[in-house]
Design a protein around this nucleic acid. Structure first.
Lengths: 249, 249
DNA sequence: AAGAGCTTGTGAACGGGAGAACAAAATCCG
DNA sequence: CGGATTTTGTTCTCCCGTTCACAAGCTCTT
C-alpha cells in the first residue's frame, strides 16, 4: 500500500493505477478549509484529530473529508485519526504554502486599499509585493507598508519581484485591458474582484469573487423563502406577473 | 407548451412533468452573470441577442446558457434570439431584484468600510440599511451616508428596517457569535467574509467569500505550472520532501 | 496474545450538471 | 408561397462529485 505520492505530470492516459494524478478540483477548493481548521487545532495544542472531528469543525461530510485527504496520500492512522501538525504540513505543502507567493494588487480603490491593509495576508503564505494604480494622483501613497506605483511600471515590477499572482480590484471597464497587461507581464494567476468577465489565454487561471453575484444568489433563495412563507397566494401573484409581462414582448 | 411558470412548493415527488420546480443551483449562480451582460447590452442600445452572443460575453457554453434560460420559461424567439430588455427583466424578477433588499453590514474594519462605501451596491437592488460594529469607538462614524450603530442595537435595527440579509465582515473569532445574533434577530441570509466556518440552523442560507482560500487555490495550480515548467527533476524533489517528512510522525 | 472497539481508506451506487446533437419554430429570400 | 437559414428548446449521454457502506488496520484491554 501507500502509493507514497503520485506526483509528476500524467505520463499517459493508460490504465495506470490512480488516474494520472491531479487532485479533483472540488477537493483542491476544500484543502484550504482543512488547513485552516488544522492550524486552529494546532494552536490549541490538539495533537490528533479524527475525520469526524475535522468534519464537524469544517462543516463537511466526514466521508468526503477522508476521501479528500486520501488523494494526498495515506496520512492518518486507523483507529486513531490524523496527526494534526503532520497533516497540516502535508496540506500546506500540497497547496504550495511552504513557499511564499508575491502578489500584486491592481486598482487601489476602496477594495484594493482594504486588501492592501489586510494583515491576514502574510500569515497565510502570501505577500503584497506591489501596489499598482492607473491614477497618478495615487502613486506614492502607502498601504500596509507598500507604496503605490503606476500601471506603466507593471511589467518591470512583475519581473523584478517575481510575481505570478495578480489581484484585480479595478472598475469593471478597466478589468479586461488590465488583465491583458497582467498576462503580458507574465502573471499566470488572476483573482478578479472586478464585476466583469475577463478572458485570458489558456494556461492562465482566473478566479472570480463578486459581491453582487453572491448577494443576488442569496436574494434568489430569500425570495423563495418569503413566497413560501405567505403560501400559495403569493405564488399565484408571481405567475400573474409572468402572464401579464408576457403580454407584449 | 410553455409551462408558464412552475412556482409553488413542490407538491409531491411524483412523476410530475418538470421536476417539482427549483432551478438548479448551478444555474442560479449564473443568472446574475447573464443579468449583468444583458444590462450592459441594454445600455448600449442592443435590442436582441442570440445565445451565442450572450455566451461569448459571459464566457459560458451557449448550450448551457440556453438550458439555463429554459428553466425560467420559454422567453426567446427561434431564429431571432432573446429580447434583451425583456429577458433582463425576467431574470431580475426571478432573482428578486425588482424589489430592493435592505442589507446590514457587521464589522466596520477595512473590508466592512470598503463595502459600505461601495457605490455599485444600490445600482443592483441592494441597499445598505445599517452598519453595525462591536467597537463603541466606531459608533457614529459615517460610511456611504450611513451611520455606524452598536452591535447591541442589532435586533432593533433588523426589525425596524426589515433586513433579511447580513454581511459579515468581522474578525474570524467573532464570526460565529455574531452569526448567532444575526439569526436570532431574524436575518435568514448571511454573506460571510470572515475567514471562519459558521454554522446556522436550517432555513438560513450562508455564502462564504474568502480571499485566502481563493489565493490558495490559485497557488495550488501555480505550483503545478512551475513544477511542470522545470520538468521531472522538480517532481522528484517534491517526492523527496514527502519521504523525508514521513520520517518521524 | 487474542478479542473488542475505533477509525481510516476505498469500492460501488447514485445524482446532478456539462456538452453534443438535433428537432421544432420563426424569419428571410427568391 | 415554399424552401433555405437561423436559432431556440430539449433530449441523451457522459463525467464528476457526493455519499454509503464496509473491509483493513491500529490500539487498548483483559
Amino acid at each position: 500500500m501507500k502509493p507514497v505520492s503520485n506526483h509528476g505530470p500524467d505520463p499517459s492516459g493508460s490504465s495506470e493505477d490512480r488516474a494520472g494524478r491531479g487532485i479533483p478540483e472540488a477537493t483542491v477548493a476544500r484543502l484550504p478549509i482543512y488547513l485552516r481548521a488544522l492550524t486552529l487545532l494546532a494552536e490549541r495544542g490538539v495533537a490528533t484529530a479524527s475525520s469526524e472531528d475535522l468534519a464537524a469543525t469544517t462543516g463537511v461530510n466526514s466521508a468526503k473529508l477522508r476521501k479528500d485527504l486520501s488523494y494526498l496520500g495515506s496520512y492518518g492512522t486507523r483507529g486513531v485519526g490524523y496527526d494534526v501538525e503532520y497533516l497540516r504540513y502535508q496540506i500546506a505543502r500540497e497547496i504550495g504554502l511552504t513557499q511564499d507567493w508575491p502578489v500584486v494588487i491592481i486598482g487601489l480603490g476602496n477594495l484594493g486599499q482594504a486588501l492592501a491593509n489586510y494583515a491576514g495576508f502574510g500569515t497565510r503564505g502570501f505577500r503584497v509585493a506591489a501596489l499598482v494604480d492607473n491614477d497618478r494622483a495615487r502613486v506614492g501613497e502607502m498601504y500596509g507598508g507598500v507604496g503605490v506605483r503606476h500601471l506603466d511600471e507593471l511589467d518591470e515590477l512583475v519581473r523584478e519581484r517575481d510575481v505570478s499572482i495578480g489581484v484585480l480590484t479595478t472598475p469593471a471597464a478597466a478589468a479586461q485591458p488590465v488583465a491583458d497587461r497582467l498576462v503580458r507581464a507574465g502573471v499566470t494567476s488572476i483573482l478578479n474582484f472586478a464585476p466583469a468577465v475577463i478572458s485570458v489565454p489558456a494556461g492562465v487561471d482566473v478566479r472570480k469573487v463578486d459581491l453582487s453575484i453572491e448577494l443576488q444568489i442569496l436574494a434568489y433563495h430569500e425570495l423563495r423563502k418569503q413566497v413560501a412563507g405567505s403560501m400559495g397566494a403569493a405564488t399565484l401573484d408571481l405567475d400573474d406577473m409572468v402572464a401579464r409581462a408576457v403580454g407584449s414582448p
